[in-house]
């Protein structure tokens, strides 16, 4: 899965595409892993731009949960942004909106996670 990473100073924005389910979640996990390794205090912040994600199943949500746990243990910041309406409902019903940092847009996520990255994003 190509996450099309884009860097704004200290923040990396990743943009998965399509469905994250049993057939794609392993690939998603593997491609996400190196970014999560660097998602730590004094290193990168990570935002997952979900604008192009159409569906996420429980196995995909589990990948996000593990990534969030890893970020927390490394004192890093992970945000998930721009959920499509159906995906937003899946997040709500599974209660993932209560345990992950979800933002309405990438810009709002950047505003929370890194003012420097926001400035770079707005300038781009």
């Amino acid at each position: 899965m190509d996450l099309r990473p884009k860097r704004y100073v200290d923040t990396v924005v990743l943009s998965p595409v399509g469905r994250i389910d049993h057939s794609t979640s392993e690939d998603f996990k593997i491609t996400l892993a190196p970014h999560m390794t660097r998602c730590a205090e004094g290193q990168d912040r990570v935002i997952l731009d979900f604008a192009s994600v159409e569906y996420i199943s429980s196995v995909g949500l589990r990948v996000l949960m593990l990534a969030s746990k890893q970020a927390k243990s490394q004192r890093g910041s992970l945000g998930i942004a721009a959920l499509q309406p159906a995906v937003r409902e899946i997040f709500d019903i599974s209660r993932f909106t209560m345990v992950l940092d979800v933002f309405p847009s990438v810009r709002e996520g950047l505003a929370r996670l890194s003012p420097k990255a926001l400035a770079a994003f707005d300038a781009a």
């Binding site: 429980s58 949500l61 589990r62 949960m65 746990k69 599974s94 209660r95 993932f96 209560m98 345990v99």
Partner: peptide, 8 residues
Amino acid sequence: YSLAEATS
């Protein structure tokens, strides 16, 4: 449980 609880 909710899925979030069951996975955390």
